[in-house]
């Protein structure tokens, strides 16, 4: 039940056993938490920097990893310019790949 991967091996069943152990530990920690929180009061509301959430606000997909995405955006916008949607550009890039392949095959 082990998959040789070069340096070592990978065994999903051993991983599952380890994951079960970690889950058990997490459950143990969680069960020692406070039980005196009140359901249905404002303790259940999301915490937005201490301000009241505006009506109808919802955390959508575009809000997740916001900084991560914004940090990458300058680089990605440069890549995006290549994907112009113009057929001639598609063919031009194909010619580039073809030239590389021919070059590599010739040497």
């Amino acid at each position: 039940m082990r998959l040789v991967t070069g340096e070592g091996y990978w065994s999903p069943l051993a991983w599952l056993a380890a994951a079960a152990g970690v889950l058990l530990l997490a459950g143990l920690l969680w069960s020692r938490g406070r039980r005196d929180w009140k359901r249905g009061t404002e303790e259940e509301l999301p915490f937005l920097s201490g301000e009241a959430a505006p009506e109808g606000a919802r955390v959508g997909g575009q809000h997740l990893y916001w900084g991560f995405v914004e940090g990458l955006r300058p680089y990605v916008e440069r890549l995006r310019a290549f994907h112009s949607g113009f057929v001639a550009d598609y063919v031009a890039w194909f010619v580039v790949v073809l030239a590389m392949a021919l070059l590599v095959a010739m040497v």
Binding site: H83, G85, F86
Partner: peptide, 10 residues
């Protein structure tokens, strides 16, 4: 015009 038929890009 192929330059105008490019709704799919980016």
């Amino acid at each position: 015009d192929a330059r105008k038929v490019r709704e799919l890009r980016g």
